[in-house]
Design a protein around this nucleic acid. Sequence first.
DNA 1: ATAATTCGGATAATCATTGTCCGGTTTAAT
DNA 2: ATTAAACCGGACAATGATTATCCGAATTAT
Lengths: 160, 160
Amino acid sequence: MQMKTGVEQSVYAVLLLNMLPEKAVLHSEVISGQIGASPTYFQKLLRKLVSADLITSVPGVKGGFKLKKNPEDIRVYDIYVAIEGQQSLYSPSGILNDVLELEKDDRCCVLGELMEEAEDSWKSVLKRETIASLSEQVESKRFVNHVTDLKNWVEENMVV
Amino acid sequence: MQMKTGVEQSVYAVLLLNMLPEKAVLHSEVISGQIGASPTYFQKLLRKLVSADLITSVPGVKGGFKLKKNPEDIRVYDIYVAIEGQQSLYSPSGILNDVLELEKDDRCCVLGELMEEAEDSWKSVLKRETIASLSEQVESKRFVNHVTDLKNWVEENMVV
DNA sequence: ATAATTCGGATAATCATTGTCCGGTTTAAT
DNA sequence: ATTAAACCGGACAATGATTATCCGAATTAT
């Protein structure tokens, strides 16, 4: 039970896109290069983010990706769902139902209720934080100089 | 990102073992038969529970498994850790460190802190519930008659 | 027109989980 | 003592999900 690395990469990608000025986009291979991800697979992650309406893609020469929503409206949870899908951490196999000889309608999986509560609790933390608040943390922490380096890098590599 | 089915099976196994009278044990194949798990793999799960000191094994003819701790002292979380190990849901790959050109010592993974908090929140729910409280729920809910059936089955199949 | 890019599908590679097998050890019963 | 039935633990195979690659099509700036 481990989170996909794709979620982590996607979060950082969105953080990078958040550094873009208006109208500018970032080429997918440039991003994956910076993050150190496999370019082809990373494209698929980006497309999932596009499908989830979190980022926008611009096809053609000088194309690339940029944010679609405001950073305050992109929760870490949204990125997680975009990449991993909505399936829950725990899929009850109905074992206890068999054991107790229950009907299928009898939705009373004791363990399931607990797991659902645990998962909700986990999700609520991911829903709390947004790209805006994460960016703020990165900037306000102890490495402001590195952030300016990174922003310079973005400006050098962005298009339009 | 999905929880191993082994965790679910293990929880139910422990619930079954909790129905045993003192000194009695349950044969591993009998349990896996009831739960509908593959017998050989299920043995491995049981041995993990043994290693975690949650249950005891009795080798030899008339051998089997029984609880080692009191049901109040076995948390769902303990079973989860016994089966899945202690690795966290999120293993930071240090991407942001690379991006920000940080030293390895600089443990300031923004996303990591958030994920850790989320995971702690998730775990706290699993730590709250014990085998005792789960058993109580099963018994007190709406299927008391099924539980007595199950207890009869345990008595028929237990050893010593 | 051409080159550079995203899009979407098919498919392969990798890895964790699940499952099997076998020889060894322990114990009850004969 | 011998035997049979169970647990022990390691090696290894099968399965399935994630990751990764490739290719042709669509789009757009030059």
